[in-house]
Amino acid sequence: MGLGNLSIGGMITTRLDKAIGWAQKFSIFQYPFITACCGMEYMAVACSHYDIDRFGAGLPRFSPRQSDVLMVVGTISHKQAPILKKIYDQMCEPKWVVAFGVCTCTGGFYDNYATVQGIDTIIPVDVYIPGCPPRPETVLDGLIKLQKKIAGEAVAPANAGATSTSMDV
């Protein structure tokens, strides 16, 4: 992050963390990795009735390099898994992952030869949004949880390692 030399006094870094966290939480650039039925609710959340833009997350970026939240929306099959992993690897730090829908959380009721049993077997996840598909309200709730997490995270190097392994919800 290049902030290493700033972390001399605790005061400056905590203040800085707060400011950056506050700014970051309202400028979520998400990469929607849409594969299945949950995408329908994703569309509903993104459009006028539920309007995800109110939370500063209205702008999907379709390039992994320009986005900081990976929204995994829909069932991930074995055929899809390597692609998801690749996209996650291409994203720059700091990055967060949202598992949207029960298929991405645990595999849902697709307990079979073709479906990955939860994306956390492949990549780390920050927020799980359960539901099959989750109602738009649940999605917004998950988003607010993610914002809290983003705002509370330290940017300074001492804590930077903690970014993507802990789990909220």
């Binding site: 594969t35 299945a36 039925c37 329908m40 829909g74 069932t75 099959s77 055929k79 899809q80 692609i83 009721f109 697709y110 079979n112 030869y113 073709a114 479906t115």
Partner: peptide, 29 residues
């Protein structure tokens, strides 16, 4: 084939009632 979720296999595994929720997720629009 990126969304192959074994619908047909699942139908064979459950009873006639249990296949109904899987049919929702065929054409989910």
């Amino acid at each position: 084939g990126y969304l192959h979720r074994a619908f047909e296999k699942h139908c064979e595994e459950g009873t006639y009632f249990q296949a109904i929720p899987y049919t929702d997720r065929l054409n989910y629009v």
